[in-house]
Design a binder for these strands. Structure first.
Lengths: 126, 126
DNA sequence: TCCCGTTATTTCCAAACAGACATAGCGAGA
DNA sequence: TCTCGCTATGTCTGTTTGGAAATAACGGGA
């Protein structure tokens, strides 16, 4: 597996409140994976994320909302699982919309154009 | 000094390329402080940043551009100092413009409105 | 020639972080 | 009652990170 596979310069978005990163690329991806798989554990396997880490991400997010972001249950016929609440789905929508606005802005392409072409070896010193 | 002074939820922006954070809130602030003070060391003092850390930030940024971001000199009548190159100034302008677009977008306020009111004590468990 | 504050870099140590692993409880179905 | 995969949480350990401090070089001005 080539770890050095970095498709192209990317703009990322974060929502920060009271020292916590409430939303970011990873947390949004996690929510989407949970929605897709119906469980936290399955989302972790797909994302190569430890369950503990995922839990911490969810916990940090959850601290900043009055109502839960995921409904979970353990045991049962489905042997447990998790689904997103409407609140979480709304978060995703707004986040994606903002990201789309970002990429559509002319300054985004301007910034990317200023970067040194990818995979150009770094000059020995300055 | 109250360390728990978090004015309001804040959207942050990052430019990521090849594992490196090329631009972010801290790096932009550093560039602006250098521009304002005319030296890296003075910028560090103002930002409560170690010189080493500042240097690392500049080094990381610099890796992704073909031309330098800061012109530096040691010694001399001014006893050394640093100034931004036009490239760096352009970066700042684009970054700030993007941030402004972000904050102006309706989804930004929508996201902020979904957050639990600040300083509300976290409920004991969920 | 010495002085000064800056650039530039290294070494050392403490703190923060992340991954691997272990464990307990859940509850429908067999 | 046993099984199974998931939720939920704790412990441990190695890595990464970051700060403090030391050091050398620079070069105009006194």
């Amino acid at each position: 597996m080539t770890r050095t596979h970095h498709p192209r310069p990317q703009l990322q978005l974060r929502l920060v409140a009271e020292r916590d990163i409430v939303l970011g690329p990873g947390k949004i991806a996690l929510l989407e994976a949970i929605e897709h798989h119906g469980s936290i554990a399955a989302a972790c396997r797909e994302m190569h994320l430890s369950y503990k880490k995922a839990w911490q991400l969810l916990e940090t997010m959850g601290r900043h909302f009055d109502t839960p972001l995921v409904d979970t249950c353990s045991g049962g016929s489905q042997r447990g699982g998790a689904t997103l609440t409407p609140l979480a789905r709304e978060l995703i929508v707004h986040y994606r919309a903002l990201l789309q606005r970002l990429d559509a802005a002319p300054e985004s392409e301007a910034l990317r154009a200023m970067l040194r072409p990818l995979n150009t070896p770094t000059p020995p010193d300055r």
